[in-house]
Amino acid sequence: MAEIYYLLTWGTFWLMLLCFVFLLTVSVPRRDDLRSYKRVRLLLAWGVFFLMTLVNLTELSMSDSRTNDDIWYTRLMTLWIGACVAPVFSIVNITLINSHFFSWRSLVRDLVIPLVLVAGNVFLFEIFSAKSLAFLFAYVVFIVYYVFVVVAYTVIFLRNYRQYSIRLNNYFSEPGSNLLKWTVTTQFLATSSGIMAFVSLFMPHGWLCVFALFLNILYPYYAIRFINYAFQFPVIAPVVEEVMEEEPVVRDSVLMLEDIVGEWEKDKRYLQPELNIEMVAHELSTNRTYLSSYINTCKNKNFKEWISDLRIAEAQRLLLSEPKTPINEIGERVGFSDKGNFSTRFSKSVGMSPSLWRKTHLK
């Protein structure tokens, strides 16, 4: 088991080095609105590489026959690295869906606290012993802080992702524009690695083989996804960059918007594929924030639901008036660029598939 672990440790080191070089050398589009992305790219490359390299070198420097002191130092190192990697990964992940989230002050705070805790634990361990009440108390405090950081950042990510999803549905008419679902996967993978690190504190040393193997999968996967994000960014930039604030909709403005929105619906301009709220606001000569507020308040829907319901109603009309027209063609004509999306939205709205609905209503 020891040989396998050392092999994995060396493998992890070289893989981390490869990802580090990959993150820093691959060119990304030159855009001013990618400033936050470029900051967290440096953080992801240097921060994670430094921390994981420190772990690997420490592990490789220890002898096969580990003393009790070695085991305690490994536990403290695991807590320290985990308490640093959790905020680094989470801050990077959250910044991808909310570019206003990143803050150097918060990052420094989240890295200094575990450094102080590990230094205090090492000091007490050297002065007293692993069985002293002072050290055990400090160790428990460190564990509690570690658990708090992992849970807190998972909750913060989920809250930000929920807000991102709301902004997304208030901007795009097609769910295919959601290119950041992978951030949820990586966040939970990172949380899982944090849980595994915590469990390793109470397990035999061989358990770290599983942890090392897990990191060998997580970090390269995340690095590749992270680089691809820069090329997907132009599509989702309005959602990631701008945190929309609802504007109050006054009575006179409601009446005015009702008229122009009614005309827009009557002209069936919602049949345009891949609509977004910016395009509709431009056609209606208003701003996207105000239009979004109107749709949310007066239609009691988000933008995606509003457009989808209009298209479904038109699809129902065509399904009955043109019984020989293929389902796929009708889906395309009413603005759905994807066959699966049309069937899914239709079934969710009506309660049955387009073909079954047509068959039922043509009897």
Rank of each mutant, 00 (worst) to 15 (best):
A237Q: 15
P323C: 00
V118S: 11
L8E: 13
F137P: 03
P273T: 06
T186D: 09
A223I: 06
F49W: 04
S36I: 00
L7Q: 14
V112Y: 11
I260G: 12
M244T: 12
R225Q: 15
T53R: 01
R333E: 13
S90G: 08
V184T: 09
A315G: 11
A2K: 07
P248R: 13
S99E: 09
A237C: 14
Y219D: 07
L215H: 08
N287E: 13
T360N: 13
Y171W: 11
P273W: 07
G11M: 10
A223L: 10
L180D: 08
F157V: 02
V210E: 05
V184A: 10
K339E: 09
V249E: 04
Y145F: 10
T186C: 06
A152V: 02
P220C: 03
W72L: 09
T191C: 09
F211G: 05
C19V: 04
L42E: 04
L275E: 05
V144F: 09
L319D: 12
S200V: 09
I71D: 06
V210K: 04
L42V: 00
L79S: 08
L79R: 08
A313M: 06
Y37E: 00
L257G: 04
L23V: 02
W357D: 03
I195D: 02
L17T: 15
I260F: 14
W357C: 00
Y5R: 14
I307N: 00
